[in-house]
Computed example of a mutant assay.
Amino acid sequence: MPEVLLPFPRAFVEFVNPDDADEIFRCDLTWLTSRWSCIFGQGCPGIYADRPDDGCCTLGAHFADKDDEKRVRKAVKQLTSETWQLKKAAKSGGWVELEDPENVAEGEQPARKTRVVDGACIFLNRPGFAGGEGCALHHLAVNQGRDFLETKPDVCWQLPIRRQFRSVTRTDNSTYTEVSIGEYSRDGWGPGGHDLDWYCTSNTEAHQGREPVYLSNRAELVALMGQAAYDELKLHCETFDARPGSAMRHLADPA
């Protein structure tokens, strides 16, 4: 399957956060105007060749913080055995596990994540399950007419958008916080990202969406940036997207 190798030329825009003058957004227009779309259940081969039905759910999801886990816990209480295939396994062994607790440095706490059962996340309904295959937390939101941002772990609903923070010092020694919004490419997974058998963000198979990312993932971007910043981003994306034949289009997009 053809995957575009990184890096390649990209266009970025920077603007002050309308809600916080001490923050400057740096947004990847090449990614945000790309036609990437999640193809889980529509040809996605999974990140590991021997787990073709898992999508990117093989490893389980790390919680960003206590609030993230608390929000998911509220959603879990609403799942039934008809909508969650592994509910019985969760009752007997829990649905949270610690990440490699034996190798945590002294004084640090091991990361908390969704438990992996039979090779994949405990919330992943397997093919053939009457309640629907795929993420049980995602199905819960859809069935209740809610956005899945309200039920899934942060890392799950944000992927493959990546938000990063860094402190920048200007030449006059003043500082600001740079908030970057871009593509969660292979390197975002750390060294292990290069071991994935398949990954979607730079793969042509996943760049067949009818809308650009800044529209199809509007809810996620608003949650990550705020409404005012998203509104400004949308204007920049529209301007960039209207330019024909830009040399900085995403290379995985249709020609």
Results as ranks from 00 to 15, higher is better:
Leu32Trp: 08
Ala75Phe: 04
Thr175Gly: 04
Lys87Met: 10
Gly60Lys: 00
Thr114Trp: 01
Thr33Trp: 03
Ile24Thr: 15
Asp100Pro: 02
Cys156Trp: 00
Asp19Val: 07
Lys77Tyr: 08
Lys77Met: 11
His139Lys: 09
Ser246Met: 11
Ser34Val: 00
Gly107Arg: 05
Cys44Met: 05
Trp189Met: 15
Gly43Thr: 09
His138Arg: 03
Leu140Met: 11
Glu133Gly: 05
Ser81Gly: 14
Ala223Cys: 03
Cys135Phe: 02
Pro2Leu: 09
His62Lys: 15
Gln164Leu: 14
Ala247Gln: 13
Tyr199Ala: 12
Gly55Glu: 05
Glu97Ser: 14
Glu220Thr: 12
Glu102His: 08
Ala229Tyr: 01
Leu233Val: 03
Glu102Ile: 06
Thr80Pro: 02
Pro45Ser: 08
Arg243Asp: 11
Phe123Ala: 05
Pro2Tyr: 10
Glu69Thr: 05
Gln85Lys: 09
Val142Cys: 02
Leu32Arg: 02
Leu79Gly: 01
Glu150Leu: 10
Asp195Gln: 14
Gly182Lys: 01
Thr58Tyr: 06
Ala247Val: 12
Val16Ser: 06
Pro2Lys: 12
His236Lys: 08
Val72Lys: 00
Pro254Ser: 04
Arg26Thr: 07
Pro127Asp: 07
Glu150Gly: 02
Phe40Asn: 01
Phe148Met: 09
Ala223Met: 12
Thr239Cys: 02
Arg126Leu: 15
Arg35Thr: 10
Gln85Thr: 12
Asp118Met: 13
Gly131Asp: 03
Pro191Trp: 08
Gln208Trp: 08
Ala61Thr: 02
Thr177Cys: 11
Asn17Thr: 14
Thr30Met: 06
Glu3Ala: 11
Asp253Asn: 07
Thr175Leu: 05
Ile161Val: 14
Leu86Gln: 10
Arg146Phe: 04
Gly60Leu: 05
Leu79Phe: 05
His62Gly: 13
Leu5Phe: 07
Phe40Pro: 00
Cys57Lys: 04
Gly245Ala: 10
Arg73Leu: 13
Val76His: 00
Asp100Ser: 14
Asn17Met: 08
Thr204Ile: 14
Tyr199Gln: 10
Ala136Val: 03
His62Glu: 12
Gln227Asn: 13
Pro160Asn: 11
Thr80Asp: 08
Thr171Asp: 13
Phe148Pro: 04
Arg163Thr: 09
Ile122Leu: 07
Phe8Pro: 09
Phe15Gly: 00
Val155Ile: 15
Lys91Asp: 15
Ala228Ser: 15
Arg146Val: 02
Asn103Ser: 12
Asp195Tyr: 06
Gln144Asp: 12
Asp231Glu: 15
Arg166Thr: 06
Leu251Tyr: 01
His236Gly: 05
Gly188Tyr: 06
Gln78Met: 13
Arg115Lys: 12
Glu97Thr: 09
Asn173Gln: 15
Lys70Ile: 09
Thr33Met: 09
Leu79His: 03
Ala90Gly: 04
Leu124Ser: 04
Ala206Gly: 06
Ala21Ser: 11
Pro212Thr: 11
Arg146Leu: 14
His194Cys: 10
Asp195Val: 08
Gln164Pro: 01
Arg249Pro: 01
Thr151Ala: 10
Val13Asp: 01
Ser185Thr: 14
Asp231Ala: 15
Phe148His: 11
Ala64Val: 12
Lys77Pro: 03
Leu137Pro: 00
Lys234Tyr: 08
Leu215Gly: 07
Val13Met: 04
Asp147Pro: 01
Arg243Met: 14
Gln144Ile: 10
Pro101Ile: 12
Gly145Thr: 03
Ala111His: 13
Ile39Met: 06
Leu233Met: 11
Glu108Phe: 15
Arg115Phe: 12
Pro18Gln: 07
Gly60Glu: 00
Asp231Ile: 08
Cys237Ala: 02
